[in-house]
Lab assay of single mutants.
Amino acid sequence: CAFTHRPCSHPRLEGQEFCIKHILEDKNAPFKQCSYISTKNGKRCPNAAPKPEKKDGVSFCAEH
């Protein structure tokens, strides 16, 4: 993984420079932040999710 703030030993995603944990660092990657919002604390999930086809579409990470 090419994350520069600290060493990361996670494997890169195929065709990308970053792992799934750090892929949002790459603005050109086909990922965006997960659209899930917790009902308990109102916070948005920080994980990466595939970018949807539509610009305003929602997309969820593997956990959600």
Score class of each variant (00 low, 15 high):
Cys19Phe: 00
Glu14Gln: 07
Ala49Asp: 03
Cys61Ile: 02
Thr39Ile: 09
Ile37Ser: 12
Cys19Gly: 00
Asp26Glu: 07
Ser35Asp: 13
Ile20Pro: 06
Ser38Phe: 14
Ala29Leu: 05
Pro11Lys: 12
Thr4Gly: 02
Gly57Cys: 03
Ser9Met: 08
Asn47Trp: 11
Cys19Lys: 01
Ala49Cys: 07
Tyr36Gln: 11
Cys8Trp: 00
Lys40Gly: 05
Thr4Ile: 09
Phe3Thr: 11
Arg6His: 12
Lys51Tyr: 03
Gln33Tyr: 12
Asn47Met: 12
Pro30Gln: 04
Ser59Lys: 05
Pro7Leu: 10
Cys45Val: 02
Lys43His: 12
Cys45Arg: 01
Thr39Met: 07
Cys8Asn: 01
His10Gln: 11
Lys40Ala: 01
Cys61Ser: 02
Glu14Pro: 08
Gly42Cys: 10
Phe18Ser: 01
Glu14Asn: 03
Ser35His: 03
Ser9Phe: 15
Val58Arg: 11
Ser38Gly: 13
Pro7Arg: 15
Ser38Arg: 13
Gly15Trp: 01
Cys19Arg: 00
Pro30Ser: 08
Asn41Arg: 13
Cys1Arg: 01
Lys32Gly: 12
His10Leu: 10
Cys8Glu: 01
Phe18Ala: 01
His10Val: 07
Glu17Tyr: 10
Ala62Tyr: 05
Thr39Pro: 05
Val58Pro: 10
Thr39Glu: 15
Pro52Val: 11
His10Ser: 14
Cys34Ala: 02
Cys1Thr: 00
Ile23Gly: 04
Lys40Met: 01
Thr39Lys: 11
Ile20Ala: 13
Ile20Leu: 13
Pro11Phe: 02
Gln33Val: 14
Cys34Met: 01
Asn28Pro: 05
Lys51Leu: 10
Glu17Pro: 08
Asn41Gln: 10
Gln33Cys: 04
Lys51Cys: 12
His5Cys: 09
Phe3Glu: 04
Asn28Trp: 03
Lys21Ile: 04
Pro46Val: 12
Lys27Met: 04
Lys27Val: 10
His22Glu: 01
Lys51Met: 10
Cys34Leu: 01
Asn47Thr: 13
Lys21Gly: 09
Ile37Thr: 15
Gly15Ile: 00
Pro50Asn: 09
Glu63Val: 06
Cys34Pro: 03
Glu63Ala: 12
Cys61Val: 02
Asp26Ala: 11
Cys34His: 02
Pro46Gln: 10
Asn28Gln: 12
Ala2Arg: 08
Tyr36Arg: 13
Ala2His: 04
Ile37Glu: 14
Ser35Ala: 14
Asp26Thr: 12
Ala2Leu: 07
Ser59Phe: 12
Val58His: 15
Gln16Leu: 13
Phe18Glu: 01
His10Tyr: 14
His22Arg: 00
Pro11Thr: 06
Ala49Ile: 12
His5Gln: 15
Glu63Trp: 11
His22Ala: 00
Cys45Met: 02
Asn47Leu: 13
Ala29Glu: 03
Phe31His: 04
Ser9Trp: 07
Arg44Gly: 14
Gly42Leu: 09
Asp56Ser: 12
Thr4Trp: 02
Cys61Tyr: 01
Pro52His: 08
Arg12Gly: 01
Thr4Tyr: 07
Pro50Glu: 15
His22Cys: 02
Val58Phe: 12
Gly42Ser: 12
Gln33Trp: 03
Cys1Ser: 03
Thr4Cys: 10
Ser59Leu: 14
Gln16Asn: 04
Gly15Met: 05
Lys32Glu: 14
Val58Tyr: 13
Glu25Gly: 12
Ile20Cys: 08
Ala48Thr: 08
Thr39Phe: 10
Pro50Gly: 05
Lys40Trp: 02
Ile37Met: 15
Phe31Asp: 08
Arg6Pro: 13
Cys8His: 00
His5Pro: 07
Pro52Tyr: 04
Arg44Trp: 09
Lys43Leu: 10
Gln16Val: 02
Ala49Arg: 03
Pro46Asp: 07
Lys40Asp: 08
Pro46Lys: 15
Gln33Pro: 14
Ala29His: 05
His64Cys: 13
Arg6Asp: 12
Thr4Leu: 01
Pro52Gln: 12
Val58Met: 14
Thr39Cys: 05
Ala48Ser: 07
Phe31Ile: 02
Ser35Asn: 09
Gln16Pro: 00
His64Met: 03
Cys34Ile: 01
Cys61Phe: 01
Tyr36Asp: 07
Arg44Ser: 14
His5Leu: 12
Pro7Asp: 15
Asn47Val: 12
Glu14Ile: 05
Glu25Met: 11
Asn47His: 09
Ser38Met: 07
Asp56Trp: 03
Asp26Tyr: 05
Leu13Met: 13
Asn28Ile: 05
Glu25His: 15
Ile23Gln: 08
Glu17Lys: 07
Phe3Pro: 01
Ile20His: 06
Pro50Lys: 06
Arg6Gln: 12
Ala62Arg: 14
Ala2Gln: 06
Phe3His: 14
Cys45Leu: 02
Asp56His: 13
Gly15Ser: 04
Ile20Met: 14
Ile20Val: 14
His22Phe: 00
Ser35Gly: 13
Ala2Pro: 02
Ala29Pro: 05
Gln16Lys: 08
Lys32Ile: 08
Tyr36Glu: 06
Phe31Leu: 06
Pro50Arg: 10
Ala62Gln: 13
Arg12Thr: 10
Cys8Gln: 00
Gln33Asp: 04
Cys19Val: 00
His64Phe: 04
Leu13Ile: 08
Pro50Asp: 03
Ala49His: 07
Gln16Ser: 11
Pro30Asp: 07
Leu24Tyr: 07
Asn28Tyr: 07
Ile37Val: 13
Asn41Lys: 15
Cys34Lys: 02
Ile20Gln: 11
Asn41Pro: 08
Asp26His: 05
Ile23Glu: 03
Glu63Arg: 14
Arg6Trp: 09
His5Lys: 11
Ala49Lys: 03
Pro30Ile: 07
Cys45Gln: 01
Arg44Leu: 13
Glu14Ala: 10
Ser59Ile: 15
Glu14Gly: 11
Cys61Met: 01
Glu14Trp: 02
Val58Glu: 13
Pro46Leu: 11
Cys34Glu: 06
Ser38Val: 14
Ile20Asp: 05
Cys45His: 01
Leu24Gln: 07
Lys40Ser: 03
Ala62Lys: 15
Gly42Tyr: 11
Asp26Arg: 06
Lys40Arg: 01
Thr39Trp: 01
Glu25Val: 12
Ala29Thr: 08
Ser59Tyr: 13
Leu24Val: 06
Lys43Cys: 08
Pro7Thr: 08
Pro7Glu: 12
Gln16Tyr: 06
Glu14Ser: 07
Gly15Thr: 02
Pro50Leu: 08
Gly15Lys: 07
Asn28Ala: 09
Lys27Trp: 05
Pro7Ser: 08
Arg12Trp: 00
Ser9Cys: 09
